[in-house]
């Protein structure tokens, strides 16, 4: 294929770090501002497209892209037939169970019936099952932190990078339900039919994130994690 591998990048919080990583690894010369405008970019080494984070695994599973960069949190919710090749270490965030200040949950006491609001029903279900709690999940699409204040739910299961959004909404972390970082994923056939290129990409990114850690003591991302509003 001309233009090398087709790589899907997630728009949003991980986008700039993903671009920086590809540049640092020598995979593709990408100007994020330019990709911002035109959604796809054909370089000498790779064709890069920018899509919604939740759409990255779709593009990769269906073979429209050979590889993609996406947060582990996205993979929790929509398991797809892709290979997860490398932990890229940037975009670190945690999935936490949080309850309003003063809630019995913050003292480790869990009522028999509990309602939890979340954007991550699959990961939340897995967490509650693992600790043996029967919880009614309410799937929301945004502003999950509002749900306890308005009486919609007793607690939330949500992603946090800094904890600032939780604090601003008078929520207290009760437990950690998962950890997420950006991952390199690949299409199952691409790993076989373009194995040289895919393995090279994986090796280059792995080397870059490891070196970054060795030299600076932190992942090669300046703006680590998601920006809290």
């Amino acid at each position: 294929m001309n233009g090398g591998l087709r790589i899907a990048l997630p728009a949003g919080a991980l986008f700039e770090d993903a671009c920086r990583l590809l540049v640092a690894a020598g995979v593709a010369e990408i100007d994020p501002a330019r990709l911002d405008r035109q959604l796809s970019l054909v370089t000498r080494l790779a064709t890069v497209v920018k899509v919604r984070p939740t759409d990255v695994p779709v593009y990769v599973e269906m073979g429209a892209c050979d590889a993609g960069i996406v947060g582990k949190d996205i993979l929790w919710e929509s398991p797809r037939d892709c290979y997860e090749l490398v932990d890229l270490r940037f975009g670190a965030c945690r999935l936490v169970l949080a309850a309003p200040e003063g809630s019995p949950l913050t003292r480790g006491s869990f009522p028999r019936s509990l309602r939890a609001a979340t954007k991550y029903p699959v990961a939340a279900r897995r967490y509650f099952d693992s600790v043996g709690l029967a919880v009614e999940l309410i799937k929301l699409h945004g502003s999950v932190e509002l749900a306890p204040a308005m009486g919609l739910a007793d607690c939330v299961v949500d992603i946090t990078a800094t904890g600032r959004t939780l604090t601003a909404n008078h929520l207290v972390e009760v437990a950690e339900a998962g950890r997420s970082t950006a991952r390199l994923i690949s299409n199952q056939a691409s790993l076989k039919t373009r194995s040289g290129a895919v393995n090279q990409l994986a090796a280059a990114l792995r080397r870059t994130v490891t070196d970054g850690e060795v030299s600076s003591g932190s992942p090669p991302s300046a703006g680590r994690g998601r920006s809290a509003p």
Binding site: E61, A64, Q188, A189, K192, T193
Partner: peptide, 8 residues
């Protein structure tokens, strides 16, 4: 596999 398709 075929190079033209993302599935076996």
């Amino acid at each position: 596999f075929s190079a033209d398709l993302g599935w076996p």
